[in-house]
Design a protein around this nucleic acid. Sequence first.
RNA 1: GCGGACGUGGCGGAAUUGGUAUACGCGCUAGAUUUAGGUUCUAGUGUCUUUACGGCGUGAGAGUUCGAGUCUCUCCGUCCGCACCA
Length: 852
Amino acid sequence: METRYSAADIEAKWQQQWLELGLDQTPAKNDQPKFYALSMFPYPSGKLHMGHVRNYVITDVIARYKRMKGFRVLHPMGWDAFGLPAENAAIDRGIPPAKWTYQNIEQMRDQLKQLGLSIDWDREVATCSPDYYKWTQWLFLQFYKGGLAYQKEAAVNWDPIDQTVLANEQVDAEGKSWRSGAIVEKKLLRQWFLKITDYAEELLQDLDKLGGWPERVKTMQQNWIGKSSGAHLEFPIVDSDEKIAVFTTRPDTIYGVTYVVLAPEHPLVAKVTTAKQKATVDAFIEEVSKESEQDRTADDKPKKGVLTGGTVINPANGEEVPILIANYVLYEYGTGAVMGVPAHDARDFKFAEENNLPRKVVILPDDADNSDICLLEAYTDAGTMINSNRFNGMSSVKGKSAVIRYAESEGFGEERIQYRLRDWLISRQRYWGCPIPMIYCDDCGVVPVPEENLPVILPEEVEFSARGGSPLAQMDGWKNVDCPCCNKPARRETDTMDTFIDSSWYFLRYTDAKNEEKPFNLDDANDWMGVDQYVGGIEHAILHLLYSRFFTKVVRDRKLVGIDEPFKRLLTQGMVQALTYKNTNTNKYIPIDQIDPEDPQDPETGDPLTGFYEKMSKSKYNGVDPALVLDKYGADTARMFILFKAPPEKDLEWDDADVEGQFRFLNRIWNLVSGCDLSVVKKSSGELSKDEKDLRRAVHTAIKEIQEDLEGDYQFNTAIAELMKLSNALKDAKCVTSPVYIGGIEILLLLLAPFAPHLADELWQSLGHTQSIHTVSFPKLDESALKVDEITLVIQIMGKTRGTIEVPAGSSKEDLEKFARESEAAQRYIEGQEIRKIIVVPNKLVNFVIAK
RNA sequence: GCGGACGUGGCGGAAUUGGUAUACGCGCUAGAUUUAGGUUCUAGUGUCUUUACGGCGUGAGAGUUCGAGUCUCUCCGUCCGCACCA
């Protein structure tokens, strides 16, 4: 068999064979250990991109390896199929969202299959299909029953382009929508929320259980949850029964309060404002409301504020201090009011300075000797309390709890834990999403749809005319329904759920994907969960991963599953980047085919261009279409390249020359194995020659290294390097008629099987095997084969390598020293020198320390 | 500003507990095969000089050690996340 390697022929053939053999199906429960390998499911945009390819190939190698290691593996795939692009396509092209989505799924499923992924397609789910979203709705009702779903009139993040509401997590630091990029506006609407804040503490604490997660993802979640502990303190308003509550992490500075500030939106503002100040206050509120979120939170923005004319009593010392409103106090955080301690808080300091408010020093640095210090900036560190009545002389660290206890005994405050995390706003004024199963009745109020009436079907034949509100709100036939309680005419909720809800439980559905009675059965979920390896992009570090953790804890508390955390190990794969050329004067990207790579110039202006590696995208003209790569080289080459080029968590720089390199490597393997002549193989003659021993060692070294690379941190790049070394060793081997050689060839194919599954099976068959290589166990490491007769001993003088000698393996320290001392390299340097010390590291080196 | 990660040839990247720095690949150079190009194969490829039994070399500088890419400290740089959170 001396034909050329043709990926196109063999890949289609083996994909068909595997399908017929059912190799990718999930085994029923048996006594094998389980392994759940999961990739984040894609949005069915219609076209596979390189980021997908990388994601799914990584998971596939892990799944295939684990199967060879004797695990029963669950490796499913599905579609995160609700979402806005389908509506946009409907508007732009007149295709109904459902039709567009299902077409895209067909297309992308075919593309995924071409990659040779060992996915159990019998468990495929699509979040937009009624048999899936029935259970999304059912789960929502569970939340509702558990008091974890509620409605609230709220100032929400309104995306003026997509015409919908966004969760806080979906608005970036500049106040822009994560999807449309539009500046988000504030709007008051009655919306559904999920009470994720009930789980804030557990979501934070359980990060410690996630040993297999990248540190940075955990840090990001920790910051997002934003726990801080301090005190809730109440300042009585003068001439009123009401009090202003503040949250502070520094109760020890309460004697330094020189004013109190309310957020402009705070409801007490109207009550405390005096007639004299009313015009000023109203003007200020007007001014602040005109500012965009971005302006208001800008870094170097001045802290503006005005007096309300009202005053409060400092409950610790009875002093009367003014109430102000200021733009830097956020209504959404804490109580929407702060106590102003300019001497010991950087923001208050700046604000007081700009608005001529007094300062009062109450914490003295430990190294200062008097209290008259002139502050140039706020002193925010710990120190000794002064000007604080009964607390004078106490360290400020102790003072925190002492002041809290005092506040409790005097009834003006208590200890308080505050989180930055807000409840999850899930209402979306969109059509293509999961309907919220709620009904509004004039008599009965808000009524949940009875479980037996689920799913609330999303009508699929809809007309889209232009961007704007959801068509559901206009579909009277759908909207009008009888109240399940009193049978009188009522109305359905026309908002749909945030699509992040759909993806917060799909990993549970895979464990029992066809269940028509419930979302999933407890035994199956407990058998497969948690996910042993989850793979996906870092962009989901907060949103999807936090929501999924929240959902898991809620369904656990509803006794639907018995685990605390959904994902045991998380691998965040790096981006796939490609070379882009940008004109730094005009900030325009130039397509690569218009450029001479030797001398990159802007074809229009003639400016020299700079090249960088950036994430592949249409707007940068640097995308590489996976379909073209598959056509030219085949799936095995694409897989090998992606795995070899960089470690999985690092960004990967696409490079056609390196793709060629992998293609060459697969061709070398093809030629190596096709060139094998089985007829000349001799019977084992017992004792191995040196060549045979060396080859056998190379083979087992490869087994050892690849196994370690796949067990630990998934170092696919070094695993492939080991495959190359083994293939080089086999190519150079002289003993081609030895059983060691042909055994080595077989092991090479077995080691290659998870990476290049089609080529490995084809060559395996060519060696006369009738069973697919993917049903064979991973080669067993024979430690004895790694033993060497001779080792290379490094001779060092004063820690510098001066030569090497070959010595028998396992020599004693004394012998090693003797060999080293007699070596030519050592002799040159120790001749006539006084040897101070000799360090012998067994099997490694001998170092002579000589008198200088 | 706060938090995290990282810095190794021309390039992507390797290096158990501190023990021969640059594995593997790309690129490049030379040669062989080929009508030619491509493919394939062989050899070479950190750097400097006085080409050696040599010097220098893992962002910079110091330290610990017989010995440091690896450990400690200081500094520089890049990337990422958060950012008025009281």
